[in-house]
Nucleic acid binder design. Structure first.
Length: 277
DNA sequence: ACAGATGTTGATGT
DNA sequence: TACATCAACATCTG
């Protein structure tokens, strides 16, 4: 379920469960989640990946995981374990292998952290520790929370005439935004999602630069240290301003929220708060 | 029952 | 260049 806030929460949990602890066992029924690099493709699975992971990690002490955008890198001994949650991935502790548990890291003291990923879009990849940071950042723009770009930097990166909202999903521009928070940040900034990047004014770029970390910090607070993630689907409660609110009144002005598909993803906006020009 | 949509992201094709 | 589409997969909703 991850955009940046969920990945950051995941990082904190992994640190809590594993940092400073020795790995006693690595468990997987099916090691197809273990890939040569962070890749959504099952064909990038490492042959005999489980054995390689065991050889590299068992007996080693885990460090503090690092997050860049939606990626995590976990230094363990002389290695690094890179993690991506894909679309439905999460990490939880469990004593037994949970349903869709793809990989378990058993730490000294009895705790096992499990990578649970029903749709298998997520993965892990073992790399040399000395290479981990570089690989983690490869192809990513500045992290939306760690080094939030200024309006000027955003405007410089947002070239061409593609729709602004589509560009915000491009991790090379800014790393960490996904569909929901891109849509919500645009609402906060009062900018229509469909405007071409090159139509973004300096003032709007400044507003967007402020709205992005504001949105992500809000989401992080909503997660509130609980393991449960804030999302629309279960329970029926929708904590967002426009996402999933087609035809509902805007919380600021009461105008009906509109929806269309942009870049293949559902996009929502308030036509009054987010005028096209 | 079935079609369509769901938090990601890369590879293709027009 | 920039688009849409598909491909990985499991589940839920209308």
């Amino acid at each position: 379920m991850p955009e940046l806030p969920e990945v950051e929460m995941c990082r904190r949990f992994l640190a809590q469960w594993g940092a400073g602890k020795r790995i006693e066992d690595v468990i997987a029924d099916d090691d197809s989640a273990i890939r040569t690099h962070l890749s959504t493709k099952p064909s990038d699975a490492v042959p005999g990946g489980l054995n390689k992971l065991q050889d590299a990690l068992v007996g080693q002490v885990a460090g503090e995981p690092i997050r860049l955008g939606k990626r995590l890198g976990w230094p363990i001994g002389t290695h690094g374990l890179m993690l991506h949650l894909g679309m439905t991935g999460r990490w939880r502790t469990a004593t037994q292998a949970p349903r869709w548990g793809r990989l378990g890291l058993h730490f000294e003291g009895g705790q096992t952290a499990w990578f649970i990923d029903p749709r298998r879009f997520g993965c892990v990849a073992l790399v040399e520790g000395s290479q981990m940071l570089e690989l983690l950042g490869a192809g990513l723009g500045p992290d939306a929370l760690i080094e939030p770009p200024t309006g000027g930097q955003l405007a410089a990166a947002l070239r061409g005439k593609r729709a602004l909202k589509v560009a915000l999903l491009d991790q090379r521009i800014v790393a960490g935004l996904g569909n929901i928070h891109a849509v919500e940040a645009l609402w906060r900034a009062g900018i229509h999602p469909a405007i071409p990047c090159n139509a973004l004014t300096a003032a709007a770029a400044d507003a967007l630069a402020l709205a992005i970390p504001k949105q992500l910090n809000w989401a992080l607070q909503e997660q509130g240290g609980d393991e449960d993630l804030v999302y629309v689907t279960d329970g029926g409660d929708n904590p967002f301003a426009v996402y999933g609110k087609e035809k509902e009144p805007c919380s600021k002005c009461g105008t009906a929220i509109e929806k269309s598909v942009m870049g293949g993803r559902s996009t929502f906006w308030c036509p009054s708060c987010q005028p096209i020009s």
